[in-house]
Nucleic acid binder design. Structure first.
Lengths: 102, 102
DNA sequence: CAGTTATATGCTTGTCAAGGCATATAAAAT
DNA sequence: ATTTTATATGCCTTGACAAGCATATAACTG
C-alpha cells in the first residue's frame, strides 16, 4: 500500500481508526464494535499496522491495538492548499490583490 | 463512487486536482501535463465531475475543467479530530487535566 | 460538404483488494 | 496434557476499477 490515501479508501479501515481514536482496544472488541468477523478485522489491522497507522501491544492472548495518527499528516498536508479555498478565501484574495498593486 | 475518500485513492485523480488548483484547464492540456492519453484523462475527469469536485465549461470544441474543492471538506472534517493529535496536543491535554481537577 | 480538432464513450483486459471460511498459532485455564 | 480463548494466515471467490485501443460525437475550418 503505497500512500496513506489508499488506506482511507476503505470504510472499514476508517471505522477502525475512528474506533481506535477512542483508545486502544483488543481485536475482538473491535470486531464486535464494527459487527464484522474477526479475520476480516485482523487483516485490516495488519494493513494499518504495516502502514504505521497502528501499533500492537501484547497482553496475554490479546493483541491490543493503538492508534498512531502521524501517518495521517501526509493527507493533511496534501489537503492544506485546498483548505484555503473554504477557509479565509477572502483574506487570501485580498493579500494577492495587495501584492499585485505594488 | 460513494465517498470522496475513494476519489483520492487514485494518484491520477490527485494529480488532476493539483493541476486544477492552478486554474481551469482544457482536457488536452491536462492530458499533456500528466503525460497520459486523452481518454484516460476524460474518464477520470468524469469521475471528479460526478463527485462534484470539478465542473465543466464549454468553449468551442474545448471542455474547460475547473476545480470545485467543496467536496474535499468531507475529508477535512473527518480528519479534524485526528489533527488534534499532532497540533496542540499539549493544549488539549492541559484542558483535560484542568477538568479532572474540579 | 469534407476534413480536422477536441472530447467522450464502449469494450476489453489485467490487476488488486475485501471478506468468507477453514485452519494454524499461541497463550491461558482446567 | 487437553481444552479453551484470542488472534493470525491461507485459499478462494467476487467485484471494482484503471488504462489502452478503437470509435462515436460534436464543433470549427476551408
Amino acid at each position: 500500500m503505497a500512500s496513506s490515501f489508499a488506506l482511507l479508501a476503505d470504510p472499514t479501515r476508517r471505522r477502525l481508526l475512528d474506533e481506535l481514536r477512542m483508545g486502544e482496544q483488543p481485536v475482538g472488541k473491535l470486531a464486535q464494535q464494527l459487527n464484522m468477523n474477526q479475520p476480516a478485522i485482523s487483516k485490516q489491522l495488519r494493513v494499518l499496522r504495516e502502514a504505521g497507522l497502528a501499533s500492537v501491544r501484547v497482553d496475554a492472548q490479546q493483541r491490543i491495538y493503538r492508534l498512531n495518527p502521524d501517518g495521517l499528516r501526509e493527507i493533511d498536508d496534501w489537503l492544506a492548499p485546498y483548505r484555503e479555498f473554504w477557509e479565509g478565501r477572502l483574506d487570501a484574495m485580498e493579500r494577492t490583490l495587495e501584492l499585485m498593486e505594488d
